[in-house]
């Protein structure tokens, strides 16, 4: 079987703020034998526009996505939220397209398409995992991220209480209903701290930015690390915090 030609959809947030996550996806997928491309015309899936009520702007970004990612065997995004936007909402905005149907959140692509759960990773830390709402409820990734984490050597996985409760990010919700968002964040942080984990892992940098921003403000010392970076980490090339 020839190497699948994979389009990497970095998402605007990861491209701009968390390049280490996108590089981790690249390393991981190449290690697993994929032919990965990053089409330079990509920008944003339009989720912020769509969810805030700006449908027309979102529609034009959906159309742009369909063009930019045409022709790949699969498109992989390190985000359940943006992946959900593309697969579930883009068809409604633009009409159906192979680019939408072939878009996967990272853990789905690894487990369902490549059929692997042990990706040869090494990450000797105590980790807890927050399943982000859209990965869970829009895409239905279920326990795939946990299957992947359980196969990581050295990793001590601890269960997060009330894991499936939203962290309170919700895009512009965090600004429009800042007080409620902060209250939700407070409860999520309490649950994270109760686990005693050094690292909070999730499949979405948006939620991690939110929870991590709170944890950092409180100087808790708990780090937030995207699932891709843990899975890319090996004994030869271990994960290192970006400066």
């Amino acid at each position: 079987m020839p190497a699948p030609r994979v389009g990497l959809f970095a998402t605007c947030l990861t491209d701009t703020f968390y390049p280490s996550t996108a590089r981790a996806v690249l390393r991981l997928l190449e290690r697993l034998g994929c032919d990965v491309d990053f089409p330079m015309d990509q920008t944003c899936c339009g989720q912020m526009h769509y969810n805030t009520g700006y449908r027309e702007e979102a529609r034009s970004l959906a159309s742009k996505y369909a063009g930019v990612f045409a022709g790949y065997d699969a498109i992989v995004a390190p985000s359940g939220s943006c992946g959900g936007m593309v697969r579930e909402i883009h068809p409604e905005l633009h009409g159906s397209s192979d680019a939408f149907a072939r878009t996967y959140e990272l853990s789905e692509f690894l487990v369902d398409v490549l059929g692997v759960t042990d990706v040869g990773a090494y990450f000797p830390h105590r980790v807890t995992y927050h399943p982000t709402c859209h990965s869970l409820r829009m895409l239905g990734v279920g326990d795939k991220p946990l299957q992947l984490l359980r196969s990581v050597r050295g990793l001590d996985l601890v269960e997060l209480p009330e894991a499936e409760t939203c962290c309170g990010f919700g895009g512009t919700f965090a600004v429009k209903n800042a007080d409620t968002s902060t209250a939700m964040l407070g409860d999520k942080m309490r649950c994270v701290l109760n686990t005693g984990a050094e690292v909070l892992c999730a499949g979405d940098n948006s939620c991690l930015m939110h929870i991590g921003g709170g944890l950092s403000r409180l100087r808790t010392g708990v780090r937030t690390v995207h699932l891709a970076e843990i899975l890319a980490s090996t004994e030869e090339e271990p994960w290192a915090a970006t400066p």
Binding site: A174, G213, G214
Partner: peptide, 16 residues
């Protein structure tokens, strides 16, 4: 946002 959360420092270079 910043009333309760720190914001990430933009990295030296974007992924692209």
């Amino acid at each position: 946002w910043t009333s309760a959360r720190d914001v990430p420092t933009p990295p030296a270079e974007s992924f692209r």
